[in-house]
Design a protein around this nucleic acid. Sequence first.
DNA 1: CATAATCTCCGATGGAGAACCGGAGTATAC
DNA 2: GTATACTCCGGTTCTCCATCGGAGATTATG
Lengths: 135, 135
Amino acid sequence: MLALLTLVDHYHQGDPLQIRQIAAQQHIPDRYLEQLLATLRRSGLVCSQRGARGGYSLAREPWKITLLEIIRCIEGRESQGQTPPPASLTIERAVVHEIWQEADQAANHVLENCTLQDLCDRKAAQQQIGLMYYI
Amino acid sequence: MLALLTLVDHYHQGDPLQIRQIAAQQHIPDRYLEQLLATLRRSGLVCSQRGARGGYSLAREPWKITLLEIIRCIEGRESQGQTPPPASLTIERAVVHEIWQEADQAANHVLENCTLQDLCDRKAAQQQIGLMYYI
DNA sequence: CATAATCTCCGATGGAGAACCGGAGTATAC
DNA sequence: GTATACTCCGGTTCTCCATCGGAGATTATG
C-alpha cells in the first residue's frame, strides 16, 4: 500500500521506479517488497520493466484502482477472500457464516469506494494541516 | 459463537450446560472449547458452575450480548482490537492506518447491531425455510 | 557484444497465533 | 467421600507473515 502510494506520486513521470528506491523511501525491507510487488504484477495491478533502468509502475490510472482490489490481490494469493462455507454445514454454522459475510461486505464497501488517488488526496490534506502549525 | 448459540437455546432452563454436551452438539473439540469458554468467563460474558452438575450459562440475556462484544473478548486476550498506530509514523502510514480503521469500524457496526438473540432468530427463520421443502 | 543494473524465481528461516491434547489440581452435588 | 465437572498449565502441530540469500533471466547502454 505504501509502495503503491509512492508509485502514484511518481505516476506522471514516464519512467518506472525501482524497488530499492521505494523500499528506502517507505522503510520497507526491499527483499520483502519485491515479493509483494511480484504478486501485484501477477494480478495486473502494476507493470514491471526488467533489466537496467527497469522498475515498477502502475498498470492503470490511480483513480481506477480501488483499495479493495489491492487487498484481494494480496490476501488472495492462496486463500480465496470469500471464506468458503464451512465443511460440516449445520444451520448454526450457516447463520454465523452469513453474519460474518455481512460484516466483511461492510468493510469491503469502504475499501471499494476508496481509490489510490483518494488516499493521495488525503495525504495532501494532512500535509497542509501539518503546515498550518508552522505558519 | 456456536457454543454461545447453544447456550442461548438452553437459556430458559435454569441449569448450566456442560462443555461435553456443547462440544458434541456443535462438533467442536471439547478441550479447545474449554479454553474459549474460559476466556469468555474471564470477560464476564458467561458464568461457570464448578463441580458435579456444573457447566456454563450465559451471564446476561441473549438480547443484551452483541457479537462485537464477543469478538472483542476473543481477539482481545492480548492484542487490543484497535491496531495501535504504526511506530514510525510517516504521513502515508497515518493515512493508510486511517482508512483501515474506517473499514474496521464499518464491520464493527454490523456486529454491534446484532445480538445473540438476533442470530437465534435468523436460525429459526432458516429452519422454517428448510421445512418448506418437505411440505 | 559485454557488462552492469534490475527484475524473477525458488527455497529457507524465525516468530506469532490458532487449534488442539493431556495431566494435575480444585470445587461441589449427592 | 466420591464422582463429576470446571481450572490451570504446559506442550505440540500447523499455518501465515516477514524476512533474507542465491542463482538466473532480461535489457539499456557504451
